[in-house]
């Protein structure tokens, strides 16, 4: 399952121990640069840079990462096609010949920019998701003064997603064993049963969890234990100069058009 492997890589990649604040700041700043850029050059550069970082630095298998990227690419490509055909305001570049559709130059440019931005931003997020264990992000959120209750709920949701994924997998198998998915009608019924049963299980697990937490002196708030290191000046400087270089690239390529 893709969620499972994503989570696995986040905990096993070779830069999992790098400073979290650094990784988050790096991803967010690069996303912003991507969005600021008015030409597709820099977003595409970022896409390839991230590809390089993810595969050679974090050592995520190339095949897996391509599969991961194919999802935004499919959506981005569809957007690109639609924009090319429908978003032009200037003279058509050429006619396709069916349904009186035409390709517009400005539409094509805009579409390609959007595609490049999608890929660039998604690569940044991919970098973050694939290299950073989620619990570390929780701690960071805490430092950003996000209300504790939200983080606690998120923490437990994250943990129990996997418990329930496991649980529903077992239920699904047991339903399949008894031919629960043999016809469309059966499938509808089985899915409904699975969902309602999972809901009840969630409820009772929640109660059980509360008992176990109470047994360990829970008094209404989870106190986190790990401390976060801040980024040191040297790395911060490197990061900022990198982002500055990208911004410079954005400025220099601002007038670039595909056609």
């Amino acid at each position: 399952m893709i969620e499972n492997t994503l989570d696995n890589y986040a905990y096993t990649n070779s830069i999992k121990d790098a400073n979290v604040s650094f990784k988050v700041l790096f991803a967010i700043l690069t996303v912003i640069v991507c969005l600021v850029s008015t030409s597709p050059v820099i977003p595409l550069t970022i896409t390839f840079l991230m590809l390089f970082l993810i595969i050679f630095l974090a050592k995520i298998p190339f095949k897996f990462y391509l599969k991961f990227l194919s999802i935004p690419f499919i959506f981005g490509f569809m957007t690109f096609i639609f924009m090319t055909v429908f978003f032009g305001i200037s003279e058509p570049w050429f006619n396709i010949g069916i349904f009186n559709l035409a390709v517009y130059k400005d539409g094509l440019n805009l579409g390609f920019l959007v595609l490049a931005r999608i890929m660039g931003c998604f690569s940044c997020l991919g970098f973050l998701v694939l290299t950073t264990p989620i619990n570390e992000i929780f701690f960071l959120l805490e430092r950003f003064r996000i209300p504790k209750i939200i983080i606690e709920i998120a923490m437990m949701m994250y943990r129990y997603i996997f418990v329930f994924l496991d649980e529903s997998g077992k239920m699904y198998n047991s339903q399949q064993t008894r031919l629960g998915y043999s016809s469309l009608k059966n499938t509808y019924r089985s899915v409904a049963l699975l969902a309602s049963n999972l809901f009840i299980k969630t409820w009772s697990k929640g109660e059980q969890l509360y008992i176990t937490m109470e047994s360990r002196c829970y008094n209404g708030s989870i106190k986190t234990f790990e401390v976060q290191k801040s980024i040191d000046i040297e790395n911060l400087f490197l990061l900022l100069s990198f982002e500055f270089l990208l911004l410079l690239g954005v400025y220099l390529t601002r007038g670039f058009k595909v056609i």
Binding site: I134, M155, R159, L209, I211, M213, I222
Partner: peptide
Amino acid sequence: PDDQLFAPTVVE
């Protein structure tokens, strides 16, 4: 143990 381990990591 799934009822008891609620935190995202062992140490927590």
